[in-house]
Simulated scan of single mutants.
Amino acid sequence: MTTEKSLILDAVQVKQKIRRMAFEIYERNVKEKTIVLAGIDGQGYVLAKLLAKEVANISPLEVKLVLLHLDKSAPAQSEITVDCDLKELRKKCIVLVDDVLNTGRTFTYGIKPFLDTEVKKIEVAVLVDRGLTIFPVHAQYTGYELSTTIKDHIEVVLGKDTAVYLH
């Protein structure tokens, strides 16, 4: 049985959403010298790289890109790590980035490493917000909001064939 998928955003639209999100990140952090984009391993990190490039193109902000690794299927049992020394993040604004905000569970566990250091603030950026959060997570930066059922699946493809699909 094949599942049908519907195109939600094409490559041009995804690029526009990322550019708009970059402007919003800059606007909310205009007084900062450096911001940290912490991408959750997988498509979240790819999105963080794209956002970092856009923020660097449109602003004087220094952007530190950080890879956050956790097991999305079992975040409570997995080791949650970042690929930098936490001291480098002290008193910085952190933007935690992932492709889709579903329940908020991944983001809730994803902030854990940043709780071990004194950061200025933690914000959330997502390409697609499904509006199904069961954890107290709100995305400050959203490319696209889409009301879906819990059974629906959002597929984000970033790279060669960039697009967002609903299954």
Rank of each mutant, 00 (worst) to 15 (best):
K5C: 14
L7S: 04
L7R: 04
I8S: 09
L9Y: 06
D10N: 14
D10V: 03
Q13N: 06
V14G: 14
I18V: 15
R20Q: 10
M21C: 12
A22D: 05
A22V: 02
F23R: 01
E24R: 03
I25L: 14
E27C: 00
E27H: 01
N29K: 01
N29P: 00
N29A: 03
K31W: 01
E32Y: 04
G39W: 09
G42Q: 08
Q43Y: 08
Q43L: 13
G44C: 09
V46F: 14
V46M: 12
L47C: 13
A48G: 14
K49H: 08
K49R: 11
K49G: 10
K49D: 06
L51V: 09
L51F: 15
A52S: 14
K53F: 09
N57T: 01
I58N: 05
S59V: 00
K64N: 11
L65M: 12
L68Q: 06
L70D: 01
D71W: 09
D71M: 10
K72V: 12
S73G: 08
A74V: 02
S78T: 01
E79K: 06
E79R: 04
V82A: 06
D85C: 15
D85E: 15
L86S: 13
L89P: 07
R90Y: 13
K92H: 10
K92N: 11
C93F: 08
I94D: 12
D98N: 07
N102P: 00
N102R: 01
T106N: 08
F107V: 00
T108S: 06
Y109A: 05
Y109T: 00
G110R: 01
G110S: 04
G110M: 02
I111C: 08
I111G: 03
K112D: 03
P113W: 04
F114S: 10
F114A: 08
T117M: 15
T117L: 15
